[in-house]
Design a protein around this nucleic acid. Structure first.
Lengths: 306, 306
DNA sequence: CGCGATATGAAACAAATCCTTCATAAATTT
DNA sequence: AAATTTATGAAGGATTTGTTTCATATCGCG
């Protein structure tokens, strides 16, 4: 009914397309809503291929040609649009401040909102499910994405039995991956300008059979293609540069959902941990928020710095 | 820029139109957003007039013909769509739905909004200023906050001369802090249940005289008390647990602002870096956005995974 | 009621757009 | 290295879509 299935249709076929058609797939995928305004020739120019290739791409997708695609897309976009356009007016309430700082924050907010439309609840829940039932959880993310990988791995240690942050360059990779298998889950985090090592490691891991969850910026990205499930978070911010806030929010949502689901099992672990902490004097005694801190009880254990 | 003026155009002329053209005017007026999908013939059928009348109507409106109208309308609808309606659409999918996932995302959004009210532009700008003019930048953040510290340090390396991520437990702390002094800046990141090591390190560093910027959850927190400037980002999320999304957004804003200010100086560095990357084969060759990636130029260098 | 002006649709024409064919180039296999 | 398969763009034919023309109809007005 909406444009969702066209996205699916494209990403399902993406891998087995010839290079030129991939270009078309990428352009259409990322500019689907603009496509109704363009003719085959313009798409060809944008994707830097010939018009014929554009037509072939849509033939491959099951359309009789570009014309039919445009008709179908038009109908779908209208369906999307007519349901949402009523709300357009009420939305102009957003913000009056005009500064770089607030601009950037607003962009981040938009990207978080976009998360919800790109990731259905069902997908999110399935991801949580998979993570909770994994024998071991492996987390891979390099360069900037390593911050996210670290965060995810660090926090999930409290709720999942075995969490491993993959760190190339530190010790032996084969050893780190040795006994990975189908009951395990790999979360691979990688964004545009994908790091080669991340992709290659994922390729090497795939045959071992773990369930692979990709956190990435596009369903067409290399890690998404290798994955069993892709969670898409946009990082590209129109006017400015790039932001990892949206993926951070996604990861935070995953952690929270897992924490909620696992809290009963986790409580004893956290209690024991708490004892260790105080034995090692990990946290400062009374912080400035001491006044609003009740003794540890179910439900607030994550109020601590983890 | 939006479709508003087309409505005006139609209603302004409406009275002096011949009957058949009024029919066209009415149809277009009430189905403007569907019009992009239709051709002249279909409009004619809908309005129960001839195709020629449709053309004449648009001539009367000042367009060279139906084709031009369609082009103009297309652009306007796209403009509408990409500004407000897309935001609204995602807002709808977020607010309308009742799930843990969207709850958490909404909380994150609230916290980011709170950032703007807790941190005046002036404070933000001063922080950017201080960071840009620092001789060296030291970043300290442990446990969960280490993810944020890592992210900040990793990205700022490209724009500032000397960035050091303090890592206790790895090598000698005294050595890492040896020649810190007043021209330097320390960014210390720490949230509730503040890690003892973070506070103690900051206490040891303070006498050396660097400018200390604290990123923390309260102006009363230990690190805020030790700091010269505190940037407050809330992490506590009412119903659920805790989220580092807001501090992430704050840090992203800092990075972006610094990148913007330093970009001219940074370009040569980034160019050289780019060469190194390709020599070491760091990134995979063509991502899904390959088509719209021009060769590296000013202004887009941060589209890469950093 | 009749004349001129205006409005209208059918059909011919023009343009844009789409699709197919074919020759060449690249990749893959033998 | 040759042969086969596959991929690709250029060019031209086919189709859809848009525009103009022209004959007829309608309207307003004396």
């Amino acid at each position: 009914m909406n444009t969702h299935d066209i996205f699916q249709q494209i990403s399902a076929n993406y891998e087995r397309l010839p290079p030129s058609q991939k270009k078309v797939a990428e352009y259409i995928f990322h500019h689907l809503n603009q496509a109704i305004l363009l003719n085959a020739n313009q798409v060809a120019l944008k994707a830097k291929v010939s018009e014929a290739t554009v037509i072939r791409f849509f033939n491959g997708l099951g359309f009789s040609g570009f014309a039919e695609f445009k008709r179908v897309l038009g109908r779908k976009i209208m369906a999307d649009h007519s349901t949402s356009s009523r709300l357009i007016e009420s939305a102009k309430t957003l913000e009056g401040r005009d500064s770089l700082f607030s601009d950037i924050l607003l962009e981040d907010i938009e990207k978080i909102k976009a998360l919800a439309s790109r990731i259905p609840d069902k997908t999110f829940n399935t991801a949580v499910e998979k993570l909770c039932s994994a024998r071991r959880l492996y987390v891979l993310g390099l360069r900037s994405s390593h911050a996210l990988a670290f965060y995810l791995a660090f926090d999930l240690r409290f709720f999942l039995d075995s969490v491993r942050l993959i760190q190339p360059g530190v010790g032996d990779i084969p050893e780190q991956l040795r006994d990975m298998g189908p009951p395990d889950v790999l979360v691979v985090i990688s964004f545009k300008r994908h790091t080669r090592t991340t992709v290659e490691l994922t390729e090497r891991i795939k045959p071992k059979g773990p369930f692979i969850i990709a956190i990435t910026n596009s369903a067409l990205s290399p890690t998404a293609q290798l994955s069993d499930m892709a969670l898409i978070a946009e990082t590209k911010i129109p006017a400015h540069f790039e932001s990892y806030t949206a993926p951070m929010s996604l990861i935070n949502a995953l952690i929270t959902a897992i924490a909620l689901r696992k809290k009963d099992q986790a409580i004893p672990v956290l209690k024991r941990l708490e004892e260790e902490f105080s034995r090692f004097n990990t946290f400062v005694k009374q912080g400035p928020d001491a006044f609003d801190r009740a003794p540890l009880k179910q439900g607030d254990f994550l109020q601590e710095e983890k």
